[in-house]
Amino acid sequence: MNNTTKRGFPLVWQRLLRNRMALIGLLLVMIWIVLAIAAPFITKYPPNEIRLEHKLLPPSADHWFGTDNFGRDLFSRIVYGGQVTVWTGFVSIGIAFMIGVPLGAIAGYFGGVVSNVIMRIMDTLLAFPSLILAMAIAASIGPGLIGALIAVGIVAIPEFARLMYGQTIVIKEKEYIEASRAIGVKHLSILRGHIFINAFPPLLVQVTLGLGSAVLITSSLSFIGLGVKPPTAEWGSMISYGRDYIISGEWWMTLFPGLAIATTILGFNLLGDGLRDALDSRR
């Protein structure tokens, strides 16, 4: 085995590619990211072009996923909607990571009152179901992309804080941390250099899984009208429009955005599970 020669990133990568489910997850995620980036080049119709004479057309060679009640091309809207989804996902999880991880690290490292204050606030946030909390925050900010971003970000903060808190408590008791303290290394350097680096693998898994739930919450917010404002294409709001047409038989209006949401979340979850296995140093 050449496992002994490889280490760090190449080893994790190799293990990930050997895991079929993780590979499927990676593929799904990559497809949506590539489609979102390449949107202007692969779509025939602008996503917001209303052509009432073409409304409610079933899938065909011209309109792959059919058209909606305004005659807009559903394929274009889904691909452009992917831009919104990918963007909100990464930005909101980025916010959650940058706030949650330092909070958890400080709470775990210093303990005492600081830890109690931070972690009890996190517990309070965790006490609400994430969707309810996101709705409340989004509603108080008002509908729109920024509101949804902030809402999804805040909801994800405690997940990162709690994970980092647990990691920090374990890692700070290691002898190499005591060795650094014996050298006189400053707290901030210990937190950055030793604790964060050793806590990184589970955090990366959490980022991937968090992206999945961020997609779900963003779409849900849009579905109930708290997310992206129309006419911007977004998967959740597209399902919401299509809802009225399920009974009359225009199934494509809900099926395709639904599939888009499902495959994206599935992709992130499979990738997250695969990463967790690949990063497990005990193997």
């Binding site: 290691k174 002898e175 190499y176 005591e178 060795a179 250099g193 030793h194 680096i197 050793n198």
Partner: peptide, 8 residues
């Protein structure tokens, strides 16, 4: 074993 950071 424990006194050296495994990631460094």
């Amino acid at each position: 074993y424990g006194s050296l950071d495994p990631k460094w």
